[in-house]
Amino acid sequence: MRFSVAFILATIMAASENVMAGPPPPPPSGSGQQPPAGPGALAGPSAPPTFLLVPGAWHSPPIYDLLRAQLTQRGFPSVAAKLVTVGPTDAKSQGIEQDVVSIRSQLDPLLDAGKEVVVVCHSYGGIPTAAAVEGRNLKDRVFYADVESTLAAKAVSQILPQSLKSFNDKSSFEPWTAGFEMGYIFAEDDQAIPIDVQKQMQSAFPAGSFTASLKSSHSPFLSMPSKVADTLQQAVDQCAKKP
């Protein structure tokens, strides 16, 4: 089995928290927790990215203690991941699939918190991490791509579970066939629903229906609320002019 000595992959999501100032204590040995950032912390409305450090074969989180101390001095939070295939007890019964699950369990909370994450893997760690990051890049986490980072993080924190049944059920009424005025606002940079799919959906509406286009991602009401309000006003005005 071949693997690179160093495997680095950036998994992008909006950053959400400002870095705290203060003297940087060294990270606790063996823990995955990050101490407060030090004087080198980056200033600005958004936090710097968080590094998720995945060790190689035979190694555990403390192997990254020296590197994490250096990252802290530069203002970067970090988390040292643990591989379940490494350990004195039941590690022999674990495989790559279990490492994938473990890495995801440490990566997903960071992404769900709206953080920008850079994943750094050493040696064997690049193999399970390559699978663990599937579906977790910016293109695949699409709702708030152009939303200001702090606002995006707040929106992420308010996301709730949705029933699978709701996506499989069929609608019982099509208003565009029953005389309703219809309209569609295209989101040109939507990474959830491609523009071609949007146009296909809009094509079901009657000829002359209101359309507008915004250069936004999936949630223009967050990234450009003023333009959305202007567009809605245009839609109302157009409908009002119809006999």
Results as ranks from 00 to 15, higher is better:
residue 93 S to H: 01
residue 71 L to P: 02
residue 129 T to Q: 07
residue 22 G to H: 07
residue 179 G to Q: 08
residue 90 D to C: 03
residue 39 P to R: 11
residue 35 P to V: 15
residue 32 G to I: 10
residue 228 V to H: 02
residue 100 V to Q: 06
residue 4 S to P: 03
residue 159 I to R: 06
residue 180 F to K: 03
residue 34 Q to E: 13
residue 33 Q to H: 12
residue 43 A to W: 03
residue 5 V to W: 03
residue 117 V to A: 01
residue 14 A to G: 06
residue 138 L to T: 10
residue 196 D to I: 06
residue 41 A to H: 09
residue 84 V to T: 13
residue 223 S to C: 02
residue 114 G to M: 06
residue 12 I to Y: 04
residue 134 E to F: 14
residue 140 D to L: 09
residue 84 V to L: 10
residue 54 V to N: 00
residue 168 N to A: 13
residue 49 P to H: 05
residue 74 R to A: 09
residue 94 Q to F: 05
residue 233 Q to D: 11
residue 126 G to D: 05
residue 133 V to I: 13
residue 166 S to W: 05
residue 190 D to G: 04
residue 161 P to S: 08
residue 118 V to F: 13
residue 223 S to E: 03
residue 133 V to H: 02
residue 202 Q to I: 10
residue 131 A to M: 07
residue 214 L to W: 09
residue 48 P to R: 14
residue 231 T to P: 03
residue 157 S to I: 14
residue 243 P to M: 10
residue 202 Q to A: 15
residue 136 R to N: 04
residue 161 P to R: 01
residue 151 L to H: 00
residue 121 C to L: 09
residue 119 V to M: 01
residue 96 I to C: 06
residue 158 Q to T: 10
residue 65 D to P: 01
residue 13 M to D: 08
residue 239 C to K: 04
residue 135 G to E: 05
residue 99 D to S: 14
residue 102 S to L: 13
residue 162 Q to C: 11
residue 167 F to D: 07
residue 9 L to E: 13
residue 8 I to S: 09
residue 195 I to D: 06
residue 236 V to D: 02
residue 109 P to W: 10
residue 30 G to R: 12
residue 127 I to S: 04
residue 76 F to R: 06
residue 107 L to T: 11
residue 228 V to E: 02
residue 224 M to R: 08
residue 206 P to I: 06
residue 166 S to K: 11
residue 50 T to C: 05
residue 36 P to F: 05
residue 39 P to Q: 12
residue 130 A to Y: 12
residue 193 I to Y: 04
residue 188 E to C: 01
residue 175 P to T: 05
residue 170 K to A: 14
residue 127 I to H: 04
residue 93 S to N: 02
residue 170 K to T: 11
residue 80 A to R: 03
residue 128 P to H: 14
residue 44 G to I: 15
residue 11 T to A: 12
residue 115 K to R: 15
residue 40 G to H: 09
residue 59 H to R: 10
residue 213 S to F: 13
residue 202 Q to G: 13
residue 154 K to W: 04
residue 73 Q to H: 14
residue 68 R to S: 08
residue 87 G to D: 01
residue 179 G to V: 10
residue 87 G to M: 05
residue 140 D to Q: 12
residue 96 I to P: 00
residue 36 P to E: 06
residue 38 G to Y: 11
residue 92 K to R: 12
residue 195 I to P: 00
residue 53 L to P: 02
residue 81 A to S: 10
residue 23 P to S: 14
residue 13 M to S: 12
residue 37 A to Y: 09
residue 28 P to Y: 07
residue 231 T to Y: 10
residue 170 K to C: 07
residue 48 P to F: 11
residue 237 D to N: 12
residue 237 D to F: 08
residue 12 I to A: 09
residue 48 P to C: 13
residue 92 K to S: 07
residue 47 A to W: 06
residue 98 Q to D: 15
residue 110 L to E: 07
residue 187 A to V: 01
